[in-house]
Structure formats: C-alpha cells, structure tokens
Design a protein around this nucleic acid. Structure first.
Lengths: 211, 211
DNA sequence: ATTCGATATATCGAAACGATAGGTTAAATG
DNA sequence: CATTTAACCTATCGTTTCGATATATCGAAT
C-alpha cells in the first residue's frame, strides 16, 4: 500500500520523506494520509530492495539524486551512496530519494495487481495509473466498480434484513453508506466512459495526448 | 476501535465471534469490516479485562450467558464460567459472549472519548451512540463535522495549490474527495438538526448553533 | 458418496498507526 | 532584542489490525 504511494510520487520527481508525506496528504486528504511510522520504514525497505536510491543533501541545495548521475541510477547512485552517507555537521540535511528502474517496474506491477481491494489502495492506484498501460487502467476502474456494486447490494440487503434490530442511528449510517456507494459508482462510470473515449479498442503502443 | 464494535454489539444481545463478525459486516459494510485476526484477540483481551464474559454453548441450543443468571453477570457468570469451559465432544460449539457492567461503562467511555477521529471509529460511535447521554451524541456529531470541514478546506486548497503538478486522474480523485466531504457534512447537518429537535437546549455549557 | 460452501474458533507474520524523541531553522511575538 | 512558537526533517517503539492460513463440524447439492 505505502510502497505504491512512495513509488508513485517518486516516479514524478525526486523527494525526501517529509515532502513525500505532504504530497501524499494532498492527494489522499488529511484523513487518510500515511504516518511517519510507516513511511520511513517503507523507505528503508524500498531502498534495501533496490526500488529507490537515496542521497543525503545539505540544506539549501537543490541537488537531487539524478543530478550527479549521467544515466541510470543503479550504477552511479550506488557509488555515490556508498561514498558517504553521513550528516554534514552543523547543517540541516534531507535524504532525497529517487526511483530506480526496478522501482518503476514494481510500481506498474502494484497498480495492476488485482489484490488490495480496499479504498486507500484503489485511490493510490488511480492517482498513479498514468504509469500503466491503458488496459490496466480500464481494468482497475471496472474491478473497483464491481466491488462497489457488490458491496452496495449487500448493504441494501442488510438494511432490509436487519430492519427490526437497528435503531435510527444505525439506519442512517447504513443508508448513508449505500448512498455513498451509489455516488462512487456513478463517479467510476464517468471515469470509465472517459477512459473508453480516449482508448477506443486497441492501441498497445505509445500513449499520447494526456501528458 | 474493535473494542467499541464488540461492546456495542454485545450491549444489544449476546453473540459469539462468528455472528459478531457478520453483524459488524452489516453495520460497517463489507469493505470496512474487521478481520478474525483482530476480532478473536480482541475478545480474549476484553474477557481478560472483565468487560465481557463467555460461555461455551453446544450447537443447537439457544442458551446465552444471561439465561442461567438471575441478575448481573459479574457473580454468576464467573461461577458458570469457572465451572468448566470445555468443548462438548462430537458436537459443534459456540463461545457466546455477554457484556458486563464494566463493559457497558467502557462502551460509553469509548463513544465519548474525543480521540480516534478516523472514519471507522466515528461510524462505530454513531452506530452505538444510543448507549450514551444526548450531550455526548451531539458532541460526537459536531466534532466529526468540524473535522470534515477542516479536511474539506485543506482539500480545496490542495487542488488549487498543486493544479499544475497533477494529471486528470489525480484531479478527479481530489475533486471526488471534496464532493464526498461536502455530502458527509450535509448528512451530519441533518443528523445534528434531528438531534437538536429531540434535545431542545438543556446543555449547561453554551455551545450555540454555530453553523 | 463425496465434494462444496457455510459455520465456527484460533494463531502467525507483516503492515500500518499513533506517540514520541531528537534536532535545525525561520518567523512572530513580547 | 530575546524568546518562544511553528515549521521542517528523520527516526524508532509499542500496539493494533490485517490477510493468510490451519482445523474441524455440518448441511446440501452433485
């Protein structure tokens, strides 16, 4: 889940942890943002697995990991990183992360994988779905739609089935759930229609237009 | 969080773990239900702390923990429980839980506590808020409203601030967030109005009709 | 007859959270 | 001017929750 968030943000620009959290808060809203307690361990995990590379940058400088490198991150980033990861004394340091090729692969894989059907994961997948094939995008939207349709049906059945057991607070909550599900499905329908308009039926090669 | 769910459901009727999960799925929807991996440990924890009492019931029988007891659970439930918690051989057993007085206290406390501002917790608090004082109910709704209003403002600001950085997918996601927040606030306003209609103005600490 | 799905309890490792701690710098406030 | 406050930045700790998995009984359909 959080890997998706980090890799998605880093595929647009190199960022450090704190900025990563702020951006994520913008995208996901303050109520479903991630905590530092999961972000920093995730960054360490991703760095260990070679999905991202990190460079310590003294305050004030605008250096990012791809500046001191000529080509791919794998080679020179590793050398740069190995040289000396240490705080510069008497200055504020940032640890700027950049995504690697393996990371980009991983990102596309995470967006396309059918598991992780929770709302947070879907929102992240949608937010970064421009990094995948158009088919994967459409597939993502339709899978989410199917999930919500099933949830909506079950919700409606529950209201009928348990009508005698529930009080007005529960009833209001359950009805609000079904209404929210309906709105979400309508929203997805609009997204699916827009997606079909751009991608008529085929087109497996280079994506155009949108960016 | 899960303690709230368990105690809330048990304050209406005695239930076993599996049924507890089904009921919770009805209330919260299948997409935000709890897993067995948190439910059973939670039941064990609540039993250890004396908030619930459990009785093993052979399949077919409709016995629940409060049937063999004359009054409060604390005395006789403990005796019954101590007598012999053991599976009846060759039969399917349920472990039926009942809430204790301490559990009811704990439930009211959990609903009234101002922390746990996430959506799941609020939904559960609302679902079971009939077990608290009317002031606590109103307070709960107004606190949630304030949270959403702030989130909405921040969301709107984010859309403006990051308008150049985001593509159409992110934009759609962020706009959908703000629309959902608006709908949720409108829903809360209806609930608050209904609550004020029942409880006129008896609150001693003046809060005023702020909206 | 046997497979299949629902009922039922339980545990394990991994993921994510919330609180907290540590430190630097810019801005506002008295 | 001095001091406090707020924002920036990285990091860890203990707890909660999840998802997968194991085990077993039962009714119903194949």
């Amino acid at each position: 889940m959080i890997d998706l968030a980090v890799l998605g943000l880093l595929s647009e620009s190199d960022l450090h942890g704190y900025e990563l959290k702020k951006r994520l808060r913008e995208i996901m809203g303050p109520l479903s943002s991630v905590s530092f307690g999961s972000l920093y361990p995730a960054l360490a995990r991703l760095e260990r697995d070679g999905h991202v590379a990190a460079v310590i940058v003294p305050d004030g400088q605008h250096v990012s990991p791809n500046i001191p490198m000529t080509g791919s991150l794998s080679g020179e980033a590793a050398a740069f990183r190995a040289s000396r990861i240490r705080s510069v004394r008497g200055s504020r340091n940032k640890k700027v992360y950049a995504i690697s090729e393996a990371g980009r692969l991983k990102l596309a894989e995470l967006i396309s994988e059918p598991s992780s059907t929770d709302e947070r994961s879907f929102n992240l997948k949608l937010a970064f779905c421009r990094w995948t094939e158009p088919d994967a995008r459409l597939n993502l939207l339709q899978r989410r739609r199917a999930t919500l349709v099933e949830s909506l049906g079950e919700g409606r059945r529950s209201i009928v089935a348990s009508s005698e057991r529930i009080d007005r607070y529960m009833r209001s909550l359950m009805e609000h759930h079904t209404e929210s599900a309906e709105r979400d499905i309508a929203w997805l329908d609009r997204l699916i229609a827009a997606e079909l308009a751009v991608v008529p039926m085929e087109s497996q090669t280079n994506e155009g237009a949108s960016s």
